[in-house]
Amino acid sequence: MRTDSLGAFLKTRRDRVTPDDVGLRTYGTARRVPGLRREELAQLAGVSAGYYTRLEQDQAGTASAQVLDALARVLMLDADETAHLHNLARRPAALRMVRPRPERPDARVLTLLRSLGESVPAIVWGRRGDVLAWNRTGHALFAEHVDFGAPDEPSRRPTNARLFFLDPHTRDLYRNREELARAHVAYLRLASGRYPTDGRLAELIGELMMHSAEFASLWARVEVADCTTGPMNLRHPVLGDVDVDYQVWIQPDSPDHRLEIYTPQDVASADALNLLAAGTAGTAAPAAPAAGRPGTRPPSLPAGSPSA
């Protein structure tokens, strides 16, 4: 997980920017680096080559926001990558991991979820991708093999990335799996920068690295993205092929809790979701968590894995 340091992130992004990208002439000289040289980046960002070298070696201490913004501009970082750069720069030199208390979904997010009824599939995700709540349609679309009441108890909550990378039941659910796998990993990378001392998040990433070669390979690419909208092409075991768009709604005062809804891309997918909603409409279920609901641990977790 050393790819999480400020210096490592800067190097990966420097390697991706060519002299042509920033208008530098090379006069046909041989180059030993795939992207910009350190001194070239430093000059374009208006800092000394020695200072930038220390930044890349994680030996320069805290960088100012102005310097970080200048580096982001030269490296052509997008908004998510720039935010990640600033998050990494703010990390203390010695991290002390803590285990946060189990998350409780914000009441206003749950109110919004209840207002949707079963008309569209919807899930409330926590900061680590834990399912904090879902409606019956969302549960039936993505994880009907998991106990519907599992989100009510923190120790049994299914986790988005665990389901995607480790659960054999969902291995063939996604027809655009490669695209979605990159999105999952990119979001966890962003989250790890936002919450560097979150021990539960670090455990999740470590577990995925150990048990999923696919995850480990993608993690090494150091991609960063918030992933708030995009296509999701499913091969549902009951409905067949269903194409939806996911959209994330975030309350400004509770950004950790993300309400994700899934809307159909075409008429056939709309009909399939209507059938799914009709099939769940007769099952009364509260959208808000209710403590003490019985059930079993989600089958996606390998033996010995942390459950939250």
Rank of each mutant, 00 (worst) to 15 (best):
R101L: 15
E103W: 03
A63R: 10
A83Q: 14
A284L: 09
G138R: 02
R136W: 01
T159H: 12
T62M: 02
D147H: 11
F148T: 05
I250K: 10
R127M: 02
M210A: 14
D130E: 14
E81T: 13
V185Y: 11
R54I: 00
P294R: 13
L188N: 05
L44Y: 05
V131A: 12
E118T: 14
F215L: 09
V109E: 12
A72P: 01
N176G: 01
G61Y: 00
G240F: 05
R127H: 08
N233W: 12
P252A: 09
D243H: 13
H139L: 05
R189I: 01
F148K: 08
L208Q: 10
T26D: 08
F142T: 03
P252Y: 03
P19Q: 05
A122D: 02
L110M: 08
P105N: 04
P154S: 04
S64L: 04
P154E: 01
G50W: 00
M1W: 02
A45L: 04
P154Q: 06
S217L: 01
T53R: 10
E40A: 08
A186C: 08
A272P: 04
A213G: 13
G230M: 05
P294I: 14
P100A: 13
R104I: 15
S155M: 09
W249N: 09
A281Y: 00
P92R: 09
L36C: 10
T82F: 01
L116M: 14
G206C: 03
S212H: 09
A93E: 14
A42C: 07
L88N: 05
G28Q: 07
R108S: 13
E223C: 06
W134G: 03
A72W: 01
N160P: 00
G50P: 00
A63C: 09
E118G: 13
G35H: 08
G7T: 11
S254L: 01
R16V: 01
P299G: 04
Q66S: 15
G117A: 08
N135D: 06
R14T: 06
Q265M: 15
P306I: 10
G240D: 01
A291F: 04
H86I: 06
D152Y: 04
H257N: 03
D266Q: 02
G28H: 08
R128H: 08
L204A: 03
S305H: 11
D271K: 15
P151G: 08
L180M: 14
R128T: 01
A272N: 03
R114T: 14
D106V: 05
F215R: 05
T137C: 06
N87H: 15
G193F: 14
D243E: 14
K11C: 07
L24I: 02
I123W: 00
G117V: 04
A272G: 07
H145C: 11
T18N: 10
A8D: 13
E118H: 11
P302L: 04
Q66I: 10
R189C: 09
T263I: 12
R101C: 05
L163Y: 01
D198C: 04
G279M: 07
A70N: 12
A183I: 02
G230V: 07
D198W: 09
L218C: 12
R25W: 00
